[in-house]
């Protein structure tokens, strides 16, 4: 019975403004409505604490390392988040990033194409894969989890098949220039991460298309009834996610100066973790770029910090998993705060 939301008759027009509450409750509400604030605070705290214990942590050289790492995880997380905002998930981004690196290197080295052309073709292929994901999800109702898992498997296999398992050497210097250059002291990949974040923020917050993506993720039926082209909006997020994965793949081969077929798979989980830590709800419709970027930064600060503190690398995954666990716990606490307003 759907009309269970029967209300007691009320004597006055309900005033939705919250009654004056204790400041603790107000703080709770602020944190519940904008979890980004909490993640940003966590970034600052983690940075300050680790920097105090390990002096090398805040050195320029280390910050540059973190900046380049961040480009990988952060750009993947932004694309991944777009998909999650619509209520989907993209498991293919890590493997696709790996395949993109292999493809770009293969076009450049084995097919002899100039580097810019190789990059362009690679990005177009990735975008086409995203389009395919979107079409399968919106036209045939294939669960996003399944269709992107297919791509994950195929992409991982293709990387190995193309290279027969051996890395491709001799790629154009343009690739490493993309990854190794600095503007002033800031590594280019870090700037690309910032650029991707700004573009995504602008698209989501300042354009109708972005707002409609939130609407589709928040309540698909409401969006459909309001005349929003839900299928196209969902598909666009898969295209963006795959294209950004392609970009990451190209940055990675530049950084290593070799296209290694074994890199990539596994990154999708870090990307998803960054999104969730940053306040993106896995049910869709909720999460902002500031939080996603902060989530990616927090994970990188912790990962790098553990090295700086000489913690065994084997513990890294344990810590990352624990951070994700805490983030999911907080997400559910927040959901309960809003009560039955959501699933």
């Amino acid at each position: 019975m759907t009309a269970q939301s029967q209300l007691a008759p009320q004597e006055t027009v309900p005033d939705p403004r919250p009654r004056p509450r204790a400041s603790g409750a107000r703080l709770l509400r602020t944190l519940a409505e904008s979890p980004e604030a909490g993640v940003i605070i966590a970034c600052v705290v983690v940075f300050v604490v680790i920097a105090a214990k390990a002096p090398t942590y805040s050195s320029v050289a280390n910050l540059q390392v973190m900046g380049r790492d961040l480009a990988q995880v952060g750009i993947l997380a932004i694309g991944e988040s777009l998909v999650i905002l619509t209520g989907g998930i993209d498991l293919s981004v890590g493997a696709l990033a790996g395949l993109a690196g292999i493809l770009a290197a293969w076009f450049n080295v084995d097919a002899g194409l100039p580097a810019p052309v190789a990059i362009l073709i690679t990005l177009v292929i990735c975008a086409a894969i995203g389009l395919w994901h979107g079409a399968m999800v919106t036209r045939l109702n294939v669960p996003p989890f399944v269709i992107t898992l297919v791509t994950f498997t195929v992409a991982q296999g293709l990387s190995l098949a193309i290279t027969s398992g051996t890395p491709i050497n001799g790629i154009d210097p343009l690739f490493s220039n993309l990854s190794a250059y600095y503007i002033d002291t800031v590594p280019v990949p870090a700037l690309l991460f910032v650029a991707a974040a700004v573009v995504a923020w602008f698209a989501l917050e300042r354009t109708y298309i972005g707002r409609q993506i939130y609407a589709v993720g928040g309540n698909k039926e409401a969006a459909r009834l309001a005349g929003i082209p839900t299928g196209r909006r969902i598909t666009s997020t898969y295209v963006a996610s795959s294209a950004l994965a392609g970009l990451v793949g190209i940055l990675v081969i530049g950084r290593m100066n070799v296209a290694d077929p074994s890199v990539g798979p596994g990154w999708e989980l870090i990307a998803i973790a960054a999104a969730v830590v940053g306040g993106v709800s896995l049910f869709g419709g909720e999460g902002r770029i500031a939080g996603i970027a902060a989530g990616a930064i927090l994970l990188e600060l912790i990962a790098n910090g553990l090295l700086a503190l000489h913690v065994s690398p084997y513990f890294q995954q344990v810590v990352q998993g624990a951070v994700l666990g805490v983030a999911i716990l907080l997400d559910r606490v927040r959901a309960n705060y809003f009560g039955r307003g959501r699933r």
């Binding site: 109708y208 707002r211 939130y214 609407a215 928040g218 009834l225 929003i228």
Partner: peptide, 28 residues
Amino acid sequence: FPLVGQMSVAENLLLGRRPRRSRGRYLV
């Protein structure tokens, strides 16, 4: 009520269309 809970009252009221006096075609 087909409303999007996570969005603001204003965005729900104008879900799927632009304000009549909106300046841009794509920009909010």
